[in-house]
Every structure is written in C-alpha cells, then in structure tokens.
C-alpha cells in the first residue's frame, strides 16, 4: 500500500468519525433556533444526493472516455439494468450487480 493512500484513508476515517461523533456527543433534547436548524438540516439533506449526482457524472465519464458510440449503448444498457432492478427489488447491492451484468452483456454481445 502506498503511504499517501494510507494517509488519505486515515484522514477520511478520522474526519468521518468526528462528523458522526461530535454532534452525537453534543446533541440534546432542547430545541433551539428551530427555523435555522430546519434550513441547515435541509441543506445537509440535499448535499448527499447532490454530491452523489456529481460523482455519478464524473464516474460515468471514465467508461465513456473512448467516445465510441457502442460504449454509449453499453452504458445506457447498464443504467437500464440498475433502473429496472431498483424498481423491482429496491436493493442497491442487487442493482449494482444487475447494472454490471447488463453492461457486460452489452459489451460482449452488441
């Protein structure tokens, strides 16, 4: 393992733990500044899907790097697999595997 990779993992691990632990330790039942808290909560609630959407764009650009039309079809098939699987089972693990299977099938047979 490279040293910089280990350092990055440790930095993220400590940061993630603090993000989870600090509000848990300092939270109490008292509701103060309810209006502001609602806006802040909504911001954080929207931040997750926003970042995942951005990461989706960046990650999909990697298989599409070749600018090949057939690769575009493969990606579309893969996404269809994820969408249909999500609609049927609503399990992200199964959806990932279904997406990869559809992408591979398109890669091999189309």
């Amino acid at each position: 393992m490279k040293t910089d990779f280990i350092l990055a993992v440790i930095l993220i691990a400590v940061g993630t733990y603090l993000i989870r632990a600090v509000p848990f330790v300092f939270s109490s039942k008292k509701e103060t500044g309810k209006q502001n808290r609602h806006q802040i909560n909504l911001f954080f609630k929207l931040m997750g899907p926003s970042m995942i959407a951005a990461l989706l764009v960046v990650s999909v650009a990697s298989p599409l790097k070749t600018q090949d039309t057939s690769q575009l079809i493969n990606v579309a098939m893969g996404f269809s697999g994820v969408g249909v699987s999500h609609w049927l089972w609503n399990n992200s693990g199964i959806s990932v595997l279904a997406g990869v299977v559809c992408f591979t099938a398109a890669l091999l047979f189309l």
Binding site: G48, P49, I52, A53, L55, L56, S59, V60, S62, P63, N74, V75, G78, F79, G81, V82, G83, S85, H86, N90, S92, S95, V96, G99, V100, F103, T104
Partner: peptide, 15 residues
C-alpha cells in the same frame, strides 16, 4: 469500470 457509475445511480435513485 461500470461498477462505480452503477453504485452511484443505485444510491441516487432511492433519494
């Protein structure tokens, strides 16, 4: 290479 886009889409859809 498609595992990552598939994962992000599968996380995004329920949200």
């Amino acid at each position: 290479s498609f595992a990552l886009p598939a994962l992000f889409l599968s996380l995004l859809l329920p949200m």
